[in-house]
Amino acid sequence: MPKKVRGVLKIREDLCKQCGLCVAVCPVHILDFSKTKINSKGYRPIELTDPDKCVGCAFCAMMCPEGVIDVYREIVEVAE
């Protein structure tokens, strides 16, 4: 089975202030504000719209002023 590197994000939703800097720099356009959640500050935190597409580049974590995002990589097997 072919293998693929996938990014995994750990998002601290309560720290997010919905500034959108991470959304603007994501190269695969999979970050967006949550449509269902509101955090304790009253903002809509970011979430991954399509976690399988994440490449783990950490651009979002580098731009985040609040330290919301930790980025990890894992190797997953792709069924094809």
Binding site: V8, A61, G67, D70, V71, Y72, R73, E74
Partner: peptide
């Protein structure tokens, strides 16, 4: 979380 490789941690 065992086989995760750290790319960035705050």
């Amino acid at each position: 979380m065992g086989n995760l490789q750290v790319v960035y941690e705050v």
